[in-house]
């Protein structure tokens, strides 16, 4: 069953071809790892799927009511809010027991990811800590499909192990699109669908 799909999509920026008649069907409930060199069009692929870009030609199919979550190449956090307020943002205004229960979940997530649980706004956190907050916001969102744009870039091995120890169990059974150019990240997932983006084409790679 397909969750997201590109059909013969072409995308240019200022006349420069980024994707040329690219097609891809993302199976629902599976992890998809997208690899390719820098500048190959991986982020464009994500932005098209997220609905942030319109294709010049072709079609992007997103089922109606599909809920998305995403980590961008930048953290895109609300600088003057706490980590918990940022992570909770996609959930709207929670009150009472709902809020208390979600706060408990958030605090456990922060501790598991090696982040401090305090009242500091995220602008006072380090770059690496902010990155982890952005990842947790994505993972804890009530989303059907999660899009990750090089989320672990620049993270040391120990932190990667710590973060993914919390994140991976929460990705099981969800549609995940994981963009990276680090081949080691492919091994983070059990039986992922591999895709390569190169020369404007998106291809499903053999396992």
């Amino acid at each position: 069953m397909s969750c997201l799909e590109l059909r013969d999509v072409t995308k240019r920026y200022d006349g420069l071809m980024v994707l040329s008649r690219a097609s891809a069907r993302l199976e629902e409930g599976r992890a998809h790892v997208v690899m390719g060199p820098s500048g190959a069009g991986k982020t464009t692929l994500l932005r098209l799927l997220a609905g942030l870009e319109e294709p010049d030609a072709g079609e992007v199919v997103r089922p109606a009511g599909l809920r998305l979550a995403m980590t961008f190449q930048e953290d895109r956090l609300l600088e003057n809010l706490t980590a918990t307020a940022n992570i909770r943002l996609p959930h709207g205004r929670l009150r009472g027991r709902e809020l208390a229960s979600f706060l408990e979940l958030e605090r456990a997530a922060l501790l598991a990811a090696g982040l401090p649980v305090d009242a500091r706004p995220v602008r006072e956190l380090s770059g690496g800590q902010r990155r982890r907050v952005a990842i947790l916001r994505c993972v804890l969102a009530d989303a059907d499909a999660l899009l990750f744009d090089e989320p672990l870039k620049g993270m040391d091995e120990k932190t990667v192990r710590q973060v993914m120890g919390y994140v991976l169990p929460r990705l099981e059974g969800r549609t995940v699109l994981w963009v990276t150019h680090d081949e080691r990240e492919r091994d983070l997932f059990d039986d992922p669908v591999l895709w390569t983006v190169r020369g404007g084409c998106v291809r499903r790679a053999p396992m």
């Binding site: 979550a69 995403m70 709207g92 969102a141």
Partner: peptide, 29 residues
């Protein structure tokens, strides 16, 4: 207001009221 934050809000499907309360308010304060 940071266009990147507005994109983030759009992708996560954050409603207009919550977008005003959280994203715009934090930038405008």
């Amino acid at each position: 207001t940071d266009a990147g934050l507005l994109e983030m809000a759009e992708v996560f499907g954050i409603g207009a009221l919550e977008r005003a309360r959280m994203v715009y308010l934090s930038q405008v304060l």
